[in-house]
Amino acid sequence: MSTSTVNNTPKEFSPKTFIIWLFIVASTMLFLAFCSAYFVHQGDGVRNNAWLKFDLPFEFWISAGIVIVSSIFMQMAYRAALRDDIYKVPSLLTVTLICGIAFCISQYYGWLNLMDRGLFFSNKEPAEISASFVYVISAAHFAHIIGGLVLLTVGIIRASRLQIHKKNMVFINICKTYWHFLGILWILLLLFLYFA
């Protein structure tokens, strides 16, 4: 048996980073399922005059702004780690986390806005199913954000222990990838709901 070296996989694309990419693929499939169902329902609803068109809550747009800002801070944290500017990393990740929490609050107010207009998750009239879809899609994204906040919290703890630096970028790379995914996903979902 030979005892030569093993594997020439590039370090920067570690198995753990690959895992988060595959998770993103799975999540994307879930949202594609929701969006396909939305399309099918919308087609039927419009034909039968049973599809309520309504304006999305303005808070959802504010959320989109927040998520863009949070992604900028996330990227700054990543670059700080890459430069070995390790004392900046915890604070930048914390700002990202705060932005994430602000996003959640904004979403919550968005749902309150919907309810104030009489658009509830459960629907008494067939046309209200469009509101149910908005709740489902935004709530599924919200659940993903909660996962991202947990990830960021762990990242802040690690960064505070100086475990995130130029030579140990795997975790912050995972955080960055996932957080940017969530941001892009929300913007795409919002545009989908707006234009669909």
Partner: peptide, 27 residues
């Protein structure tokens, strides 16, 4: 990886119809 999330979506809609008063599948 590509198909189970779709079943998850289908199952969630079913749960909402059963317990939350939505009408994704019911008419």
């Amino acid at each position: 990886l590509l198909s189970f999330p779709v079943l998850l979506g289908a199952g969630l809609f079913l749960i909402f119809d059963r317990s939350f008063g939505t009408s994704f599948y019911l008419s």
